[in-house]
Write a protein that binds this DNA or RNA. Structure first.
Length: 421
RNA sequence: GUGGGUGUAGCUCAGCUGGUUAGAGCGCCGGAUUGUGGAUCCGGAGGUCGCGGGUUCGAAACCCGUCACUCACCCCA
């Protein structure tokens, strides 16, 4: 019979890897809480219409990357391809705008996109994201970027660069588009087929095309940042000044155009030289119109998302080991020893001392080998000799020092010792 | 969706221009040590050579197809 295998692009995170994931997730939670963001847990699937309306009907995500399926009554549902849409939906649905506190949320969990897998890209992948609602002040942009930057720096990820741009207001982009389009028309013969198509759909995307000829052709293109309204210009300058004030280095990238429709004004991306072709670790921006577009009140917002697989790929080995450790190995063998060992093991665990045993082992030698492998601190030797004496031998596996202790009340004695240290 | 690379033991990989019983290292189990782990030595288990077809006296190797994995494009975290 054929074995059933996992789905393409969907990976198991095995026990050897979970400590590094916990390290990442714990750091993300810690930093988010530290910045005053509260965890929100939103569903893994939503009505398809939510994503179509928020992300943009003509984006690749919506056009060809969503896991969409009909519910039993025919309603179209979709596994979430990102977290902002659901967070905004929840924000509107529960009328959070009425809450006087600043609404700052973070989330952590799996996302789904039907793409061809490659290094740093999976069909089920994990994101940590933060969303700040209700504040149009540039300090909110700075705060969000700082949270992202401090988190990634804390994890000591190598080769990080913060790139930043302003997309202006929707009005700015509307005014800029014909100017850009006129320029692209002149260069049309030098552009790739893709970019020629983009001239009709989303001309801004031609600016961050990776085809070398296109880069050359658009080198002297008019810049969106030169066509910002005074308000957008001030906002952008304040964000940059704030980043400088708190010591976060950035690089202006006038070509940085985010793929999702809902972004406006500040747009940023953190890349690393230590990833493969997918070098973006985290990215985000401001999306002032989204809440209203989804039927809520007019509420400004800014946020980001980090790809946790990409963080994991970059995480230095040194920071993630030394976990999963167990304190006691109960080496119970022989007829009476085995019986007493079963009880002792349970007593240790009930009192909160981690303990394990390999039930397959029948000899002391086999037990000690397992104790060594499982990296326990101590082995408790309990054979028939000890059983008749009513004692055990406590062996320090590192120093090999042994001492005989009474079996009665052993778990309390050991508990008292570990807490007094 | 498009292109390249790779599929041999649990893992990492050898395997010559086709040649007889398919190999190594690591890991695993056992023994040397009848109640003391890691080191050493000895022994053992473990393989539909991704799958299907073809060429051939003979295929892990050559040809065709197919699937999987992987990297890259598109795009994105």
């Amino acid at each position: 019979m054929d074995i059933i295998k996992g789905i393409k692009g969907v990976k198991d995170i095995l026990p050897e890897e979970t400590p590094r994931w916990r390290l990442i997730e714990d750091a993300a939670r810690r930093w988010a809480l530290c910045y005053g963001y509260q965890e929100i847990r939103i569903p893994i699937f939503e009505l398809t219409a939510l994503f179509a309306r928020s992300i943009g009907a003509t984006t690749d995500i919506v056009e060809k990357e969503m896991y969409t399926f009909p519910d039993r009554d025919g309603t179209s549902l979709t596994l979430r391809p990102e977290g902002t849409a659901g967070t905004v939906r929840a924000f509107i649905e529960h009328n959070r705008a009425a809450d006087p506190l600043p609404q700052k949320h973070f989330y952590l969990g799996p996302m789904f996109r039907h793409e061809r897998p490659q290094a740093g890209r999976l069909r089920q992948f994990h994101q940590f994201g933060a969303e700040s609602f209700g504040t149009s002040d540039p300090r909110a942009d700075i705060e969000v970027i700082a949270l992202l930057w401090r988190l990634l720096s804390d994890l000591t990820l190598p080769g990080l660069t913060l790139e930043i741009n302003s997309l202006g207001s929707s009005g700015d982009r509307a005014a800029y588009k014909p100017i850009l389009l006129a320029f692209l028309k002149l260069q049309e013969s030098h552009l790739c087929a893709n970019c020629r198509r983009r001239m009709d759909t989303n001309p801004l995307r031609a600016l961050d095309c990776k085809v070398p000829d296109c880069r050359v052709a658009t080198e002297s293109a008019p810049r969106l940042t030169d066509h910002l309204s005074p308000e957008a210009r001030v906002h952008f300058d304040q964000v940059l000044a704030g980043l400088t004030a708190i010591g976060i280095p950035y690089r202006l990238n006038p070509r940085l155009v985010r793929g999702l429709d809902y972004y406006c004004l500040t747009s940023f991306e953190i890349t690393s030289t230590h990833l493969g072709a997918q070098n973006a670790v985290g990215a985000g921006g401001r999306y002032d119109g989204l809440v209203e577009a989804l039927g809520g009140p007019s509420v400004p917002a800014v946020g980001f998302a980090v790809g946790l697989e990409r963080v994991s790929l970059m995480l230095p080995e040194t920071s993630s080991s030394s976990n999963n450790e167990c304190l006691y190995y109960v080496a119970a063998f022989g007829e009476k020893g085995t019986q007493l060992g079963l009880v002792l093991l349970d007593e240790l665990r009930r009192i909160g001392l981690s303990a394990q045993c390999d039930y397959r082992a029948t000899t002391l030698k086999a037990h000690l080998r397992q104790a060594d492998r499982s990296a326990c601190r101590y082995a408790i030797l309990l054979g028939d000799d000890e059983a008749t004496r009513g004692s055990i031998i406590l062996r320090n596996l590192a120093s090999k020092a042994q001492e005989e202790l009474p079996l009665a009340g052993l778990s309390h004695l050991l508990k008292a010792r570990t807490t007094s240290v």
